[in-house]
Design a protein around this nucleic acid. Structure first.
Length: 204
DNA sequence: TTAATGATATACT
DNA sequence: GTATATCATTAAG
């Protein structure tokens, strides 16, 4: 079984964000194996992106963003939810890709229990939901995705078209709020939000 | 449409 | 040290 390696993650962040679409995120959790196909991502790129955590001062929380590409960055938001990011680029370049939605594959029963719903479309369609379903918490923060319980398998899907849209929930950003740095598989029913009218569509 | 919910950042004493 | 505002969201109304 193949796992995405360091070379994949240490490339340009926008490229990694697009290339992660169609790949399979796997967590060998203590309760069982769960996985899903990544269908929606967002890029957060360093000090100049005022929507990124790394636009503010380096801190304990954001420290994983400064690690070499291929590590995880998990943080808690709104008191009860977690968001899972994949760190990209080289060490000391605080860039990452937020994974926003998955199409559930393995361990759907476990996901349903964790999420408290049998509706497959509500298992992983959103950054908080996906972390809950996958069993991702602060314990999975700063893991090496090339060598741990949490990893990504290469894309085996044929993807005809992609969408680039505005990122969600970052209206506080003045400069970068309208950047089309949210990527999804076009027409996927598993995304957290459908691309709006300002989106652009492309193929690779 | 809006309340929930707590860690974190920032601005104070 | 202490206070307060702010969230890369979700589910309920």
């Amino acid at each position: 079984m193949k796992i995405l390696d360091r070379e994949f993650y240490t490339r340009d962040t926008l490229t990694v964000a697009k290339d992660l679409l169609g790949c399979k995120l796997v967590h060998r959790s203590t309760d069982g194996i769960v996985s899903g196909i990544i269908v929606e991502t967002e890029a957060y790129i360093g000090p100049d992106d005022d929507a990124a955590h790394s636009a503010r001062k380096r801190s304990i929380r954001t420290e994983p963003m400064y690690m070499n590409g291929g590590h995880s960055y998990v943080y808690q938001i709104y008191g009860k939810y977690y968001c899972f990011n994949i760190v990209t680029a080289k060490e000391d370049m605080p860039e990452a890709v937020l994974v926003r939605a998955l199409r559930p594959i393995d361990g759907k029963d476990l996901m349903s229990i964790r999420r408290g719903t049998g509706n497959e479309h509500l298992l992983c369609s959103g950054p908080g939901r996906l972390c809950s379903a996958m069993g991702i918490t602060k314990k999975q923060n700063a893991l090496d995705l090339t060598n741990s319980e949490l990893f990504v398998e290469p894309c085996k899907e044929i993807i005809k078209e992609y969408a680039a849209s505005k990122r969600i929930g970052i209206d506080y950003a003045v400069k970068c709020r309208d950047y089309l740095w949210r990527f999804s598989i076009k027409d996927s029913v598993w995304v957290s939000k459908k691309p709006d009218k300002d989106s652009i569509f492309f193929s690779k």
